[in-house]
Design a protein around this nucleic acid. Structure first.
Lengths: 150, 150
DNA sequence: CGTATTTCAGCTTCACTGATATAC
DNA sequence: CGTATATCAGTGGAGCTGAAATAC
């Protein structure tokens, strides 16, 4: 082993996009691991949180709100339903739709996941002070919203 | 279509990790597209920039410096060599190693890529002022370095 | 008819693992 | 012998596409 220092080439060091991707990967991994110990993944958490926040919805509606692809939503809901965390039933008013609903078990599960995520996130962002984290979040929100259409 | 608003469930809204991942994906996509118009990808740029910054190196050395997996390095270098941007030759002092070296064409290519990336990045981070971008970068660096071992 | 919903099958890219041959 | 290097084959997740069946 000869080269293992942390120096980065000048041209690379200037790439905020690369840095952003690296940090996002680290943080994502950390939070995904926390969810995985509870048998869940990020999509499932997003679905549960959205059902909790907005009430029952169709799969297509959930896809739009969570930005999860309709195709991946099928898989996420299959897992959640098998675990008894949600129930799906055909909408009587529009029989194309499945109305997805949180169960009590799902709500309890969500509480566990949220607690685990809060902790994992506190760890991941530990190097930042509270106000710095607020600043970071505000900047990220502006990047997401203003530049929403890529 | 019934649900298409941008509201996000409270539990999701608090997940800075999710926001970070979303923004990283957007920015990565934007910069990757810029590179792709020039026939390159992020790994290839990282390799060229590292060779430019540190001079010739073995594939394993490049892997360590760029954090690109040894396996993906093979593919990146194969592309770069086929394009004439780098040359590989067995190290006479240690015949396990390939010494990878930038060519003049590779250096010219790198200049083009860097210019394209700078522009793409300016667009991606346009909503932020210069000092805000500096703040963001500083925070990301701290997250990467202090929390380097996940 | 066109459109929306759900589902399935498959693709691409990315990060990574495992095994191999070779050389130190 | 153990370790490092380069290479290849393959895995697994994530994001996405296309087409089908069904219902509006």
């Amino acid at each position: 082993m000869e080269t293992d220092r942390n120096e980065v080439a000048p041209l690379l060091e200037r790439q905020a996009s690369r840095l952003l991707a690296q940090v996002a990967q680290m943080v994502t991994r950390h939070t995904a691991a926390a969810l995985e110990t509870l048998g869940a993944n990020r999509n499932e958490f997003a679905v549960l949180a959205t059902l909790d926040g907005f009430g029952p919805d169709s799969q297509a509606g959930l896809s739009r709100r969570t930005n999860i692809d309709r195709s991946d939503m099928v898989a996420a809901l299959a897992g959640l339903e098998a675990a008894g965390h949600v129930v799906r039933q055909v909408d009587a008013n529009d029989r194309r739709r499945n109305v997805v609903q949180l169960t009590d078990a799902g709500r309890a599960h969500l509480a566990q996941l949220a607690a685990a995520l809060d902790q994992a996130q506190a760890e991941a962002f530990a190097p930042l002070s509270g106000s710095e984290l607020d600043q970071l979040q505000a900047m990220l929100l502006r990047l997401r919203d203003r530049h929403g259409g890529l």
